[in-house]
Structure formats: C-alpha cells, structure tokens
Design a protein around this nucleic acid. Structure first.
Lengths: 211, 211, 211, 211
DNA sequence: TATGAATGAGTCTTCATTCAT
DNA sequence: AATGAATGAAGACTCATTCAT
C-alpha cells in the first residue's frame, strides 16, 4: 500500500521540508501544502512517497532521532576513559545544539519536543506505536557501560549504575533543552566547564584534606 | 471586550475540564465541545468565560504552572541550610510527580510538555505571549539565592552561581520528565538517594584522603 | 453519534435538495456544497443532520421509496376486483410518472436507478445494507394476494401465483422505466389501454368461439 | 486528436478490465490505475487507446451492448412464426442471464444498470452523447416487424403494433433485471413457461367456449 | 446569563490526466 | 509505443466561533 519510494532524493527533500514546517508551526498546524511547496514539488507528489501526514511525521521522527543520536553513539563506543567520555557527552550536547540548531534550523529542536509529546501520549494512553519509554531506555543502555566501566575501574563511586545512568541522561536532556531556549543568555564555554566540574566532582566543596 | 467571568466556579470547571481534555488528546485535538461537555455546560457558555481556545490554553498554563511551582517556591524560601534545600528540591520533584500525576491524572503532565512546546515555539518565532525563556529565568532566580548562600557559607564550590543554578534547574527539569515517563522501572527512593549524592558530591570518587 | 435532528423541517429540506442534486448529476457527482446551497443552508449545517454523504443517500432512498410505493400499497389493499386492480396498477404507474416526475422533477426517477444500482451492487458483493432483493420480494408480496384472489375466484388462470406476481411486477418496473424515458414518443392513453388488454387478455387473438 | 489504437488486442484487454472494474465498484469508483493493472499495462498506456475515462465507459457500453443484443437480433431476423419468436425472446433473456452473467461475471450486469443510468441522465439533461432513447427505439424496431407479422397473419390481436412492441420490450427489460437479481429464488423453467403463457394468452381465463 | 444551532474557512486526500523519458 | 512519476483541481468533512433566542 505504501508506495515504494521512487526517488530517494525527493523523499529526503520532503522530510527535510517537513522538519522545517513541523518545527516552525507544529505538526498539527503544518500543512501538507506548505511542505510540498517547501520541497519544491506538487501537493499530490507528497502522497507518492508517504501515505499520510502521520507517516511523514514518523519519518521525520526517525530521521531526526537517528541524526541527533548518532553522535552520542559514536562517543559512547569510542575508546576513551569514562571520565572524559561523560564530560564529552555534556560538551557534545552543547556543541550539537549550537552547531546544528542555530539560526534558521533552531526550531527543529522543537520537533523533538513534539515527538516526545506524541510518544509520551501514545505511551500513556496505550496507543504506543513508538514506545517512547523503550527508546529512552535504549538510550540509557548506551550510557550505562560507561558508568559501569568507571565503577569497575574504581574511578566512579560504587553507586547503582543503572540509576546513575538514568540520572545523567535525564539531566543531559533537560540541560540540552534549557540551553537551547536560553543559549543567548549564557556563556557556552563557562557552562561546559561548570557542568563537567559539577557533575563529576559535585557541588559540595570537599573538606580540606589535611583537616 | 473579554467578558468578566461572572461565576468563578464555572470558570474553574472549564479549566479543569480543559486540562483533562488537552492532556488526553493534545491541545490541537482537544475540542471546545468536549471541554464544555466535560464541564457540564453548553458550548456557547465557554465563550462567556474565555474569548478563544487559545485563551483557555493560557489559563490552563497559568493554573497548571502555578499549582506545580508553588511547592518549589515554598521550599526555596524556607529557612534551611543550602545543602538540604538542594536535596529537598530533588526529593520534591520525585514526590510531586508521584503524588499528583499518578493514576488518572497522569496525562496532565503531558500538558506541561505542550505548554513547553508552545512556549518555546512562541519564543523562537517571536510571537512570545508567554515568553517562556523569561519564565524559566524567573524560576532560576528562585534557586540562585540558595546557591549563592551555599557559596558564601563556603559549603559550595565557588563556581559561577548563575550558571550553576541554570544547570541544576535544567537537570531537575529533565529528571522530572524522564522519571515521569519511566517511573515504573525505577526505584524512587534509590533514585532520590543517588541523585542527591551524585549532584552534591559528584560522580568521581574522591582520592582517598590518606594518600 | 448521529446528531439528533433538531429541525425536522430542515432535515426534509436537505433531503429534498439531495434528491434534486443526486437525480441531476448522480450520487457520486452530487456535492454536499450544492445540496446545502439548494437547501438554503450552510455547508456545515448539513452535517448537523447527517453524518455523511452516504447517510444522506440512505435517507433519500427511504424517502423516495416510501413516497413512490405508498400509491401501490393503497391500491393493493383497496377493496376492488383483481382484474381492475391489476389494470389500475399499470395505470397508476403511467400516471405516477406523468404526474410526479414530469418537468423539473423528471430526473428524480434516476435516483431510483441509482438506488437500485447501489442496492444490487451491495447485494452482489455482500455488503448488503439495504438487501435489495429482499425489498423487491416485499414488493412482490404486495401483489401476490391480488393474483391469489383472482385465481381463487376463478377469474385468473390457475398459474403459479408467485411466479406470475414476479413477472407482473418485473414487467411493471420495466414498463415504468421505458415509459419514463420515452414518454414523449408515445401516447399514454393508448399505452394504458393496450397494456391492460395485452397483459390481461394476452397478445394472441382467441380463436373465434363459434369455430 | 484521439490516437488510433495500434494494438487492437490491447484495446480489448483494457475494455475487458474496465468491465470488471466498473462492474465491481461502479464507474465513478473505478480507477484508471486499477483498470491498467488488471489489463497488465501501464497507467499511461491506457491513454494511448482512450482519451478519457468517459471514453472507456463508452467503449464498455458499446461492447457490452453489442454482445448482449446480438442474440436478440439473430432471433428477430430468424425465419420463424411470430408466436414462437416472441416466446423465444423471453426464453433467450432468461438463458442469456443464466449463461453469461452467473458466477464471477455476475456483477457485469451491474454495468448495464450504470449504462442505463448514464444514458438516461444524458437523455434527460440533454447532454446525450449516447442518446439512450434512440437506442431503445432502435431496439423496438427490431421487435416491431415480428408483431406486425403476427397481426397481418391474424395471429395477434389487431393492436397498435408500435405500442405493443414498446410494452413487450420494456417488460422484457424489467423481467431480465428482476430475474437477474432474484434468480436464486425462482425456478427458471417455470418462469419461462408462465411468462410465455401469460404474455401470449393473457392472465384472464377465457370464458369457457361452450357458454 | 446560557445555550446550541448554524456557519464556512480550512485541510487532508484522491485520482484523472499529462508528459518527459 | 509504453511508462509511471508528477500534478493540482476538487470535495468530504471538521470545528472554532457567532448569535438569536
């Protein structure tokens, strides 16, 4: 039923256009006509590649998610000591946002929220095509080995690695979001430094050793 | 132009109904007719209290935000040492979600996402009635004095308090979100303990003092 | 789900308009917008009374069928000798078409064909909401007692009444249709006379009695 | 403008496919794409043989009509006494339907209805490319000589032959239609016998000759 | 003040037709 | 000659909003 994509390039153009449109006005306000226009094709052509608006959204999700997350995966699997890895993940978050979502592409980030929203709602209400919680847990799995490694190596505290991972990823998510919104009001380099210092060494000043 | 609400109770019923409806199906899918029905009033009556769907959404936002944040404010202004305060803020986040958004009321949390989404979009695109970034920065201000106090007292590291506050609040936000989605898969008490330990003392194991 | 008709008069106006439109251009070419305009109401209002175009069609069917057939029922149940009754049924067919479907209302007859078509198709393909064959057989039942009565009274030949009824009704249907199409080329009174003579006394000239 | 068909065989395949498609889902629901697929050719190729869907429909009509009617023509022109001829026409109608339109090909009959519908509508509304009334009158002409012959020979009553022909053909049409729809509920042979008896000798029992 | 019947602007989607290859 | 990708006109249906009662 779903028409085989004939021209992969055109399919990509549609997705790209959809990302822009959905980002700017939201999925429910994003019109197929606008997407088509932005992709430089006729309205009907969109339906040669996607059978419904909903399916476009799914494709956008996939594309967006994959592009965004591949960086984390690369990092997670790189040969590097765990402390540096965790640190770089924070750095990457700040940098990714700055590089990929600044200027015109800024609003793209909003799609993430919309995807989350959709996913959560499905999750809660049982529709669950995307099973968002599962996706998130897959993401945690990416980070967990790093924490495990750190603990094994005696570099990290012997905390429950699963829960620690959860906290780090969740915090990372929130930081990414807030940074995105407020990035004009804060100094990225300062944030990077403090974030790492803070997350890795804690907020509390260690008592002077000699005491 | 906007008619003064005559019956405050009825206005509240509309907001309450709108929260349920928006939470369950999203703002753009939430129909005025459904809200009216759920509020037990006529469709036309809604417009005696709100001049548009958009205004209902704004009221929902206000109501929801105020209800949710008042707890943080209480905490922030309570007389308590900064370490405990920061810790309690994390605890409060976990507890609030568990107490207020479990069971039937669960999906209400989704409105928060939608509010975020809307707010961010407005922000990005300049429409900005709610100026979400401003609201967030107001929230940060709530936390900053605690950090300042901790630093002054020499309990916290002498990091830039504004940036630290940003990071804490942003992390808190992300943690709240993820906990909400995954709260069935994690042990709350464990999370509370680790979160505090982790945020306050850092992930890295201090070198043994004797060395 | 189907909204309760609020204004029976308006409902009737929609049906009437739909009859005209469907008759003139066919069901699939009949636009809701045209029906609404012809009924003097807004496009959306149509959906207050019918939940879909298909439902309008069903209502048209019902209305049309009932109006058309009530005349036959009256005749069938009137106290009258069977020969006259059969004769009057033919007369009625010619007259009904002339009176009710001449001039502007002519095309209404076409709806009947469309209804038939739809019914038959459903029948054949199993969808069968209207079960057209059943409806037809109900109609035959209306005629059968007349034939039975005529046979019992020894006025009609002792043929199988069920099959005779079938033939009469089917013939009547065909005659009505063809008359409708060709009524400008034939003399109604002559047709009436010959039809009755022909159907009742046969085409073959009886051998002269004295022979 | 209309390209000459290059491959008569392909043209026939299209018509055959169209008959199936139109029969099954109706003309307005029958898609060119489906027809092309069923004919085993590309969508665009259809337009090498027909310049529009409407033209396909016309070709279907022609094909269908010719195939169906050729039997009547053979009968009409065969050397046979008029009484037998009329009788055989009824027989032929029943047999044709049974032989040609049972099983899979059943729904094809529905096209006839659709053709009628279209023809009648065109007729009524003046568009009349097919001039259905004319076609029908041509058909009557086929039968009229038989009636004339019967009357001349003194076998048939001296009724107006033109009107009698009209009635016979119209009745035949109706009978064919109803038989098609109800052929599972009636005994064909019985129907054949009664139809002939009824049409030729009338329904009314002749007064006993001796009286 | 409360209502819900009426409205029409707005949108997804379909599909006959075109045309470059 | 054959194809199927591209197209956009067209139409059913939704729903926020209005307004007469």
């Amino acid at each position: 039923m779903i028409p085989l994509p004939k021209d992969e390039n055109k399919r990509r153009r549609i997705i790209k256009a959809a990302i822009q449109v959905f980002a700017e006005v939201g999925v429910s306000n994003g019109k197929i006509a606008t997407i088509a226009a932005k992709a430089g094709i006729g309205k009907g052509t969109v339906y040669e590649y996607f059978s419904s608006k909903e399916e476009i959204f799914a494709a956008v999700f996939e594309d967006f998610f994959i592009r965004m997350m591949s960086g984390y995966e690369d990092l997670a699997t790189a040969p590097m000591d765990p402390v540096r890895k965790i640190g770089m993940m924070f750095d990457y978050t700040y940098d990714y946002l700055d590089e990929h979502l600044s200027g015109d592409r800024g609003p793209e980030w909003l799609i993430f929220l919309e995807i989350f929203l959709r996913g959560y709602r499905d999750e809660m209400l049982g529709g669950g095509k995307l099973s968002f919680a599962n996706i998130l847990r897959d993401m945690y799995k990416l980070f967990k080995p790093i924490v495990d490694e750190g603990i094994s190596a005696g570099v990290f505290k012997p905390l429950d690695s699963e829960h620690v991972t959860f906290i780090i990823f969740a915090a990372l998510d929130g930081i990414g979001l807030h940074y995105f919104i407020n990035r004009d009001h804060y100094d990225k380099e300062k944030l990077k430094t403090i974030t790492k210092e803070f997350f890795l060494n804690g907020l509390i000043k260690p008592r002077t050793q000699g005491a």
